[in-house]
């Protein structure tokens, strides 16, 4: 703050010095060249006691008088220092402006700057708080993300384990089913084979018995029938009750 105030005070001083240093040439006494020449002419007229012809004559004869007028009226008194009245008025205005700036401008500027600084400080604090909050939220999010990743990994592992278990169970069941199917197929095949053998045997027996029956029927004439009856009677008689 001190440096800033110093710079604020130095600025008008430097402006004053620049004004004094680069002030342009002014007329000799704040008058115009015409009035200066008129003043010199009045002085000559007074010296000639009011005789204008004499003055004109002198000016016509002695051309150096004109040159003297030009030097006296046209040459500026000082290229640096202004006229005294300008210094007075300018200094007064400067002092008034300086006092107003010190009394009113600087406090207002300082208050605005303080408010601005305070606002910036508050904004910085808010930004820091927001950053801290954001960092907290980020940490929270990261923690949640880590938890989610852990949970996802756990779920994946559980799912994989369940899938392996299911697959193992399905494979075991499939093996059991396949064994059952093979066993049933073997049993059915054996049963079918046995049935086929039985059917074939029955068929062969039927054919053989049919042939035997035809042979027997053809051979059963009256004599054979009589012998069969006699044999039966003998069998009944010879068998104990």
């Amino acid at each position: 703050m001190t440096n800033r105030r110093t710079r604020l005070l130095a600025a008008p001083l430097l402006a004053l010095l620049a004004l004094l240093a680069f002030a342009g040439p002014a007329s000799a006494s704040g008058e115009s060249v015409g009035s200066c020449i008129a003043e010199k002419l009045e002085e000559l007229i007074e010296e000639s006691h009011g005789d204008l012809d004499e003055v004109l004559h002198e000016l016509h004869v002695d051309t150096s008088i004109g040159d003297h007028f030009e030097k006296k009226c046209i040459e500026a008194p000082s290229p640096i220092l202004p006229e005294t009245n300008e210094i007075i008025w300018g200094g007064s205005a400067f002092l008034i402006l300086f006092v107003l700036m010190v009394k009113k401008g600087f406090p207002a500027v300082r208050g605005a700057m303080d408010a601005r600084a305070e606002k910036i400080r508050s904004d910085l604090d808010a930004a820091e708080q927001a950053r801290v909050d954001a960092q907290s939220v980020q940490s929270d999010y990261e923690a949640r993300l880590a938890d989610a990743k852990t949970e996802a990994s756990r779920l994946i592992d559980e799912g994989r384990a369940d899938a392996d278990q299911v697959r193992t169970g399905l494979i075991a069941q499939a093996e059991v089913d396949a064994a059952g199917i093979r066993e049933r197929a073997a049993s059915e095949s054996a049963a079918a084979t046995a049935q086929a053998i039985s059917d074939l045997r029955a068929e062969v027996a039927g054919i053989a018995l049919g042939a035997a029956e035809r042979v027997v029927h053809a051979s059963l004439d009256a004599e054979v029938q009589g012998r069969l009856i006699d044999a039966y009677i003998d069998e009944v008689a010879g068998t104990d009750g």
């Binding site: 009256a222 029938q225 009589g226 009856i229 006699d230 039966y232 009944v236 008689a237 009750g241």
Partner: peptide, 23 residues
């Protein structure tokens, strides 16, 4: 029951045989 008829002799002998067997 027989495929052919029994003679009288066969019937008598069968009756006797049955008698012998069953009393």
């Amino acid at each position: 029951r027989s495929a052919v008829d029994l003679t009288a002799d066969q019937s008598e002998r069968l009756a006797a045989a049955i008698n012998t067997r069953t009393g």
